[in-house]
Amino acid sequence: MLEVKGLRSGYVAVEVLRGVDISISEGEVVALLGSNGVGKTTFASIVSGLDRPWAGSVRFKGEEITGLSSQAIVERGLIQVPEGRHVFPNLTVRENLELGAYRRARAKRTHNIELVANVFPRLRERLSQKAGTLSGGEQQMLAIGRGMMAEPELLILDEPSIGLSPLLVEEMFALIRRLNEDGLTILLVEQNVLQSLEIAARAFVMENGEIKLSGTPAEMMDDPELQRSYLGLA
């Protein structure tokens, strides 16, 4: 579904991504792991059209999308839920959800709000509430729900667990697993290594803008050197 080859990018003279190759098949959860500042969010921003690469190729469903606008990429079904939630605090939960369908699936807004409310019962209770008054966990639910409103074929979740309590982190990962079991393909960009590996089919570990490791969670968890060097599990 997604094939990224030789992706290079940076800011002014500072290279951030140094030839990144990543692939995702339909129906997978693929985790992109690494500590803060290694280039994960830059990668997600380029794939979703928010930034432009220096070099490399991004193909989605067999079509070259490198350099397309974020609007054009959304219309093709590749949706990103950004780090930091970025809900519209002065709009209601319902209005935030409706904006998620602005570029795609607009005609099905009412139907999809009902689907989101079934996934997130707490949002159903707060549809008329201003988004800025929600808790951090509820705002993250709203951000994911807003992404779901566009009927994504591939959903990029950038650090969905950041800033959440341990209990809400467990809940968030259970939700991601459930969305995948319902057929959604997901790229999970995360620092939370252990819980990401519990739900991912495959994982890539990024360090200093390069993919240093890739494979199944079992392959990563079973190698003591990999644990010590890249996963911080020693």
Rank of each mutant, 00 (worst) to 15 (best):
R94N: 11
E64M: 00
I144G: 00
V93K: 00
E95G: 02
H86L: 05
G136Q: 07
L155K: 13
G147P: 06
P121C: 08
A105D: 14
G183I: 09
P89V: 13
T185G: 13
L179Q: 03
I162T: 14
E181G: 08
S161I: 12
R104T: 00
A101C: 06
L127M: 11
E159K: 01
G136Y: 06
Q191V: 08
N112Y: 11
E138F: 15
V74F: 04
T133S: 14
P121S: 12
I162S: 13
S69A: 15
G137Q: 09
G147M: 09
A72P: 00
A101R: 08
S69G: 12
G147R: 02
G137R: 09
K130R: 15
G67L: 02
E114V: 05
H86I: 01
I144F: 05
E153T: 10
E98F: 01
V116C: 04
N96M: 05
L78R: 11
R94K: 14
L175K: 13
G84M: 03
E83Y: 14
N192V: 12
E159W: 02
L188W: 06
L127W: 13
E138A: 13
P121Q: 12
G77T: 14
I113G: 01
R122L: 11
L123E: 03
L115S: 08
V169I: 15
I73V: 10
T66V: 02
I79D: 12
R106Q: 07
I186Q: 09
A174C: 03
R109D: 01
F120A: 14
A107K: 05
G183K: 09
A150N: 06
R106W: 12
V74D: 09
A174L: 02
V119H: 05
M141C: 13
E190W: 01
T92N: 08
G147I: 05
Q80H: 11
G77W: 08
L91K: 12
G183L: 06
R109A: 14
N96E: 04
R124L: 11
I144T: 00
G100E: 04
R177Y: 13
R124K: 15
T185E: 13
G77S: 11
T133L: 12
N180T: 06
G163M: 07
G183H: 08
G137Y: 04
L127G: 05
I65N: 13
V119A: 03
A101V: 00
P121H: 09
N90S: 14
R94W: 10
L179H: 03
L188F: 03
L97W: 04
L168K: 11
S135E: 12
P89H: 09
R94G: 03
L187T: 15
L167N: 13
E83P: 03
E98H: 02
